[in-house]
Design a protein around this nucleic acid. Structure first.
Lengths: 248, 248
DNA sequence: CGGGAAGTTGAAGAGCGTCAAAAGTAGTGG
DNA sequence: CCACTACTTTTGACGCTCTTCAACTTCCCG
């Protein structure tokens, strides 16, 4: 068990009862892999699922372990990362509601995943999930499209890591959070960062000091405002986009 | 037309007659997207295809253009890359026989593709290809698996770009070429590089000078031998892997 | 053999990393 | 409510890796 404790004191976005065995009312479904399942198949899909609560800092999967399950995030946020033998770390993505863990697995998990906030996931045993998908081309199609989108995003990230300066990387990162937030229907004027400077550094191929200095530099330019270290306001998006070099 | 000239003087790995409208004898099929098509559907698949010859340096697709076609490489090699507005370039991949161009497209091409050597591709009009795939779950599945593999490779590349030193990047790059060559059934003792130092630099997030210095350093350590600038011999793979930090 | 491109090598400089310390923030308990 | 602690973030000084700029060499094709 990864999340054993009952923690009534912490606000949970989705209670156990909301998720368990009811895909119909799932708030994440529209943008998740499950959007590929027809309405009358949702109950069968629900039969495959075990909901799982994670507390901030809990590890959901570990790189190298046998890949026995796949997951959909129904609430909260996670980071996925890979480690080099000497401990250097690269965060390859931040995941949010509706995101799927399981596109890039082979026999073993190819990355680790850890909860950034209290998080709820739907857990599928892989064989059952795969055979469900195999019988449903629309689901297969949905997974392919999600993988394609991930791939395009990964290529953008390669441009960032290979060719952008520290300030451009931070600007691009903030801009991508703005876009994501607006896709989810919320305003993009302010952003709540659920990850630490360390996570951001490992995502952008920098150190925490350089990330911090880049935040300060952007603030000095009047492009962002920091209410606290985790709440970023963006008064003028065009100026942020100009520094991010647009193309990402 | 991108490749209009007839160029009998250049050695072609596959002549026009070999490819056109015969998927059965296609040397690339086993490892291409077309492996998802059943044997008795190959003729129908062949009906969708226009073979296309590219000379070294020809541009097949350009980032931002309307994505009207998808492609399978049947012979030769290509690079795909993205540009920043000021001209900085990131090569996001090198493609070889059996590789597919079209996984990560939306309405427009998200990257440019250029032939590194004389190259042959199979060209599919996108609507016809998509509807062919839509009727064939095995094909859909094959594409999903290819996208998943690409995604895993992209994440490895993020580790390289974000966290490895110049020497480790070059070692990882050479090692990946060794592995690819062995997957294709050839010996991995020597590698013929079809890309320039400039292409390698833009792939590894470095400058040509740093790439050149890293090659020289690896040669100085006795880990590689350079018969010419494009022919690399690797007497001891374990030592190369140790420098590449294994995990890629 | 000659000219142009690609690759290699050298010297100097910039950007980011490293090390260190201060400032801010959150949680705990008296 | 405030003090204490532990952690995260910020800021500063310095150093190192990689980039930049430049010259030289090698390779290739006419």
């Amino acid at each position: 068990m990864l999340a054993t404790a009952t923690h009534e004191s912490r606000p949970m976005h989705v209670t156990r009862a909301d998720v368990s065995h009811n895909c119909r009312s799932c708030p994440a479904r529209a943008r998740s892999a499950c959007a590929g399942a027809a309405a009358d198949e949702l109950d069968r899909l629900a039969g495959l699922v075990t909901p799982q609560q994670l507390m901030q800092g809990d590890t959901l999967i570990e790189e190298g372990d046998e890949a026995t399950h796949v997951f959909t995030i129904t609430a909260g946020s996670m980071k996925i990362y890979k480690l080099l033998p000497d401990g250097r770390r690269q965060v390859t993505g931040f995941l949010f509601q509706g995101d799927f863990l399981g596109l890039a697995f082979n026999d073993c998990y190819t990355y680790s995943a850890e909860a950034l906030t209290d998080t709820t996931v739907c857990r599928f045993a892989r064989p059952a999930f795969e055979s469900f998908v195999e019988d449903r081309p629309a689901m297969e199609r949905r997974l392919r499209i999600m993988a394609s989108n991930e791939l395009a995003a990964a290529q953008d990230q390669m441009v960032l890591l290979g060719r952008k300066t520290a300030q451009e990387r931070v600007a691009s990162f903030l801009l991508s959070l703005v876009y994501r937030q607006e896709r989810l229907g919320r305003e993009g004027k302010a952003i709540r960062l659920t990850m630490t400077r360390n996570d951001i550094a490992d995502y952008l191929g920098l150190t925490i000091e350089t990330v911090s200095r880049s935040f300060s530099a952007l603030r000095g330019l009047g492009i962002i405002e920091l209410d606290s270290s985790t709440l970023v306001r963006i008064p003028n998006r065009a100026r942020l986009a100009a520094i991010a070099e647009i193309a990402s």
